[in-house]
Write a protein that binds this DNA or RNA. Structure first.
Lengths: 124, 124
DNA sequence: CCGAATCCTAAGCGATACTG
DNA sequence: CAGTATCGCTTAGGATTCGG
């Protein structure tokens, strides 16, 4: 991958695709946004995200940690507490996602309307 | 459910999540970028995207059309030709994605390095 | 409180063959 | 050329249970 493609064309797409695949799963973005403002503990995140299973929260957090987007800090208390926080990289991604968030909010209704019309025309 | 979170936090995330789920699949972004500059025909897109199966290109295009992101135009020639193009909405999304593309290009290497280190520490 | 392990279902996706 | 149909593998992800 020594390619430093100057154009935002074919090569860069693969990068976006890669990042989107990671972040485009069901929970990653929700978790990122939930943990964004301050460190959170596990069950705190679970409540805040809402609707996520333990399993998925655990694995989502693990993946995010592996990717260097969140940090995991174990507090040696009893019972043990674990604190999750966004890294600089995670915050950077979070900012970038904000643009997409705005687009989504602005256009989600349009998309849903488009779907409805499409489905009407094809009742089969 | 009586929750009407006024913050642009929780609610908007659902919208992003929704859009990301749509666009975060394996091929949508690649197809969007491939069709971006000008209308393309089916097999033209297939070649340009590269590695995509007929099945997936068909269903990806259908979903994008349903969401109002691309148009599908059948030319009544023999053999029939079908032309796909980005809508205004699609172009708008494409622009928004560019930011994410840049972030991806800038940070993909960092992420991959982070993964490598993480995996080293946990050989199991 | 935090998370691992197991089980199970639904969906994503690819390959191939067939149609108009 | 531009799809559709079918098959089967692989993965995502939810529920539940067990352990530290």
């Amino acid at each position: 991958m020594g390619r430093t493609a100057p154009l935002a064309g074919q090569n860069s797409c693969r990068a976006v695709s890669e990042v989107l695949s990671r972040v485009g799963d069901k929970w990653s973005v929700l978790v990122i946004v939930a943990v964004r403002e301050r460190p959170h503990r596990f069950n705190e995140l679970k409540r805040k995200v809402g609707g996520i299973s333990q399993q998925m929260l655990t694995s989502t957090l693990k993946t995010l940690e592996r990717d260097g987007l969140v940090t995991r800090t174990v507090m040696p208390t009893t019972p043990p507490q674990v604190s999750y926080a966004l890294t600089d990289l995670g915050r950077s991604l979070s900012s970038t996602l904000r643009q997409l968030a705005e687009w989504s909010i602005d256009n989600l209704a349009t998309i849903q309307e488009s779907r409805r019309q499409y489905d009407e025309g094809r009742p089969t």
